[in-house]
Design a protein around this nucleic acid. Structure first.
Lengths: 345, 345
DNA sequence: TTGAAAGCGCTAACAA
DNA sequence: TTGTTAGCGCTTTCAA
């Protein structure tokens, strides 16, 4: 080893983390650090010989590149942040799983934050996330105007909003229309001859839009006003049971119920069964989300299928394209939805 | 502004990302960068006046600290990585949600990787994760000896294995005994007078251990060998239905079935109901995991409750303690389990 | 309590 | 194709 290659020991030096660095690998391979860097990141820029020597050195030392350092130097973290309201029993997880899978294939890592359904929490989360300088941010939902939105805009980080549509996205957008769903479900049920409707809906802005569109559509076609029962949490069965009990009490002549989640629908069915009410003969039940396992229950739940995985896949693509410096502007991508007609309608 | 404070423009300079940096804040506040850093990170080390001036400057500039740079300089990323087999309909998500929540409160961020139930995938994932230099790694499960384990050990990153117990953990361990569960469920069912058992189990090593312990326990108490039916994926209802059909065909006299997940149990119940078999009168059904909503179904599923949130909470605590340099050695923490006796047994 | 200097481990820019 | 230099934006170390 040429002592000239050694860093002159300075009295006030910090002695690193002790881990193997690119310098060590380069020294072992007999090349400059930048050459070792190229051998690993852009192998085409380097001769076969050097390439092999560097790879050998990596092998022998067990070197694992420090992506924090690389990210700092290149302003590319290869980190994508995603924010969901919740992760347990959440309809968004299919999207996140697909996103994560596709990101990993491309050498990116996912940072996951949960807002716990709180706007305040979401703002803190976004602040923290921006500090990590991710190459992109994946939002499950639309970010309303406010501090967080301003901050995000100012950060210059590519943002993808999903699971909804809006004429005023922050940046990229991929989703579907909740209004269209409400209308489509209304038509679907009316075409089946249903006339007296109830809505079991979660305290959720999007669920609200589906419900409103549904209610408007049925009243436009001359049906009476739909009974609306609110439920706090879309992810419980209990809420659906209680709401169905309320429906049966307040409007016993109801012949179709549209729930804002599959779990609520399952609860509604449970209550109906407990009260000896035939589904779908007397009341049709419709869910939302198409939780996988409900197709295999008896009776199988009719529902609205959202292509969550597709949003994850395309979302990953858009964000990666942006991260690699290509200027993608997908405009508004509508992935649509499907009404799944099973046993309960 | 004193021009002496400006960095001399060099011909080959890279002109940063253009974002506001600590230098900008410091300059505005009229202090050195390091002082601004202290004002933000260790406010007690700084005078009230300086503190206020820096905070003002932050406010006015909209400065968001770059955690990559901070992490590089301090060798503390404030990033924790967690690895799960899957995120959709996964029994681990309660743990991850709790982990994430507790980490965020303490100023840490979660990186989530999914192994897709593949060992090869998990190794790649761990390699990638190590490159990020997280302050800790949270594993849902025990990492068997192999490349990944060696690498992890070599990295020196604190590791927490969960959801299982082993005498040979990599580092920290918090979980429960799958063998104990198998035995406890066996006793529980035998005490209820059940004698002819079947097991519906997923192709999962831990489910296998629960099943084996169960089978041993029942045969030790003089019951006949339990019929074992294997199912590929624990997260489907369909698998449970098909398995139950097999049980009914191959051993119609079966009077109790222990399933390796709640969803499989729900499938088993669905099939039993379809065949007109009374639960629990003729066959008792037991699940595993205590998916929240199953308590509200009719009949409510008896199951084994795992305190997933507790593992997340305590796990966060251990990992953070380690990250802050305190030498925690919790030994083996057993969070136990609870048998939940509801309608199906 | 404050600051100057050095450096974390890597890569962009330039030069050969 | 390879190397030199100068940072990326922050914090540690040492000194005042």
């Amino acid at each position: 080893m040429d002592p000239m290659n050694e860093r002159p020991p300075s009295r006030r030096s910090r002695r690193g983390s002790g881990a193997i660095t690119l310098r060590d690998v380069a020294k072992l391979a007999g090349v400059a650090p930048i050459t070792a860097s190229r051998a690993l990141n852009t192998p085409t820029q380097v001769s076969q010989t050097v390439q092999q020597k560097v790879l050998d050195a990596v092998q022998r030392t067990g070197y694992v590149p420090n992506r924090m350092a690389g990210g700092l130097a290149s302003s590319r973290s290869r980190l994508i942040a995603a924010i969901v309201p919740s992760t347990v029993m959440s309809v968004f997880m299919e999207t996140i799983e697909s996103l994560n899978h596709n990101l990993f294939e491309a050498g990116y890592q996912l940072m996951l934050g949960q807002s716990d359904y709180s706007v305040a929490h979401e703002e803190l989360l976004l602040e923290a996330v921006i500090g990590r300088r991710p190459d992109g941010i994946f939002l499950t939902g639309i970010l309303p105007p406010g501090r967080a939105r301003t901050r995000l805009l100012a950060s210059g980080i590519p943002v993808l909003e999903t699971w909804d549509l809006t004429p005023t996205p922050i940046d990229m957008l991929i989703g579907f229309s909740h209004l269209d769903i409400g209308r489509a479900v209304a038509s679907f049920l009316m075409d089946k001859g249903r006339r007296r409707f109830a809505l079991i809906r979660a305290e959720d802005e999007r669920a609200g839009r589906r419900a409103t569109a549904f209610a408007e559509a049925v009243s436009q076609r001359g049906c009476g006003a739909a009974l609306v029962v609110n439920v706090g949490d879309a992810r419980t069965l209990k809420g659906g049971r209680e709401a169905m009990a309320a429906v049966l009490r307040q409007a016993p002549e109801t012949d179709a119920v549209f729930c804002s989640s599959d779990l609520l629908a399952l609860g509604a069915m449970t209550e109906a069964r407990a009260q000896g009410i035939a589904i779908p003969q007397r009341i049709a039940v419709m869910g939302f989300g198409d939780v996988p396992f409900l197709a295999d229950m008896v009776p199988a739940l009719s529902t609205v299928r959202i292509n969550g995985a597709e949003m994850g896949r395309q979302g990953a693509r858009f964000l990666i394209e942006r991260a690699e410096g290509r200027s993608v502007n997908p405009g508004m991508v509508d992935v649509g939805f499907t009404i799944v007609d099973r046993d309960t309608t």
